[in-house]
Design a protein around this nucleic acid. Structure first.
Lengths: 241, 241
DNA sequence: TATATATGGTCTAGACCTTATACCATTAAA
DNA sequence: TTTAATGGTATAAGGTCTAGACCATATATA
């Protein structure tokens, strides 16, 4: 009867404070909670925020600097600034996606499980304030001065707000984790009037279902919305070229 | 148009190597991949396995020792051994669950999302070898010499095997994470002939659906199986007494 | 009974990361 | 020209981790 189950122990290494800081800032940049040209808090403030020393913050920032994500300027009116994404880094991202497409596909698959269920829960629990937020994101996305970067930021905000409204912290964390992995790919998708209109349409449908507190409908439309996002990425970024 | 999104940065602290080691071993104990009386590899071997120094391994082990999870014996035939769970620690676990019941409920809610979808995916992807494994777990759970601890270990194995068979690493990791959180609670549930029979019945149904490669059915039965596990825990551990 | 051997227990020296504090260099506004 | 805020740099002290050596204990075996 008795078998000894196989133990699956993995090699470990310490995780430095500077690593945690770099990760948090990089995630904020990927999720477009920090937009290009924006200024980060000063090194002294960041040290305060992260409860770390300035040297450690500087270590994290220099990692981000060598990745080409930020830029530093000295002097008064100086500071640390988010750099716009370059065509070169777009190319690199695209190559990475093609190389690890199998892994990316799994993330999209996981997404089709989590986000619709998150919407299902959110339909019952979302607050009036969150519904207003969603509406404001929709409105802003249709303003003529909405840039590509802003459009992408608002899309992230829309989905993360629903995940948060699910009231389930694990669901919210999962959506955030998934988004951090797929957002660089989504950022490579085209941006034009048609895309905006289509996106506005489906997001409006979701918002309507949420306002109606219709669980089934919210889940169903969310499924339809993200169900083929993996395939769309594949068709655009992997198959052709 | 332009708003600055709120940045949500969190205080950090370094994560020590000894912490990572303690976590892995503690998880293996909670998931019953290590059973009571079992001997761990020697400190020198563990240092090798984790790619760490012996001193660091010892730091992790002494944490587990003060938690009452392991025991050390010196001399030849000595080593580090898993201790059986005491009545006292059962009491503490129960008190903790009652205190943080809200959080525990969220974990169960997340479980009802993930595991059925995992079964849905597994129905198409599970291998012949994994089906045999599941059958063997079922068989062993009905042998007369199956102790309470073994029964619990086989239950974990059954669910984790299906999660792995889903072919989605994020799904698998989520089920494992969820199980690590809820297993201490599940371990407090009663163990008798009736429980064993009921469990055997529903697990058999799941296995039958998986063998038939019926996605919908696999998901549906898994839903039914775990759908009320949160309520069962509540009724038994929180509501009464 | 004595010995060999595998285990946990202990110690040291050095490398690396982090903190705290201070001071320097740069730049724009007052 | 001065002021003030920024990033850039240096030093000293403490914690963690590694590598290696050696000690203490208990069991099996000759």
């Amino acid at each position: 009867m008795f078998i000894r189950f196989p133990l699956n122990l993995e090699k470990v290494s310490a995780k430095k404070v500077s690593e945690f800081i770099r990760e948090q800032l990089e995630e904020a940049i990927i999720l477009k909670e920090l937009l290009s040209e924006e200024q980060l808090p000063s090194e002294r403030e960041l040290a305060e925020i992260f409860n770390a020393s300035r040297i450690t913050v500087r270590e994290a920032l220099s990692q981000l600097e060598s990745k080409g994500l930020i830029e530093k300027r000295v002097g008064a009116k100086g500071g640390t600034f988010i750099l716009p994404v370059t065509a070169n880094s777009h190319k690199r991202t695209r190559a990475e996606i093609k190389r690890d497409w199998e892994q990316m596909l799994k993330v999209f698959e996981y997404r089709t499980i989590i986000e619709p269920e998150g919407a299902y829960l959110a339909a019952e629990r979302i607050t009036a304030g969150e519904l207003e937020l969603l509406q404001s994101y929709l409105d802003k996305s249709m303003e003529p001065e909405c840039t590509r970067e802003w459009f992408r930021a608002l899309d992230v905000k829309f989905h993360l707000t629903i995940a948060k409204a699910s009231g389930n912290p694990y669901c919210e964390a999962a959506v955030r984790q998934i988004r951090t992995k797929i957002n660089p790919a989504l950022d490579l998708m085209p941006y034009d009037e048609e895309i905006r209109a289509v996106n506005y349409g489906i997001h409006s449908e979701i918002l309507t279902a949420l306002k109606a507190r219709d669980r089934e409908q919210s889940r169903e439309i969310m499924r339809r919305h993200i169900g083929n996002s993996g395939e769309a990425i594949y068709a655009r970024l992997v198959a052709k070229g």
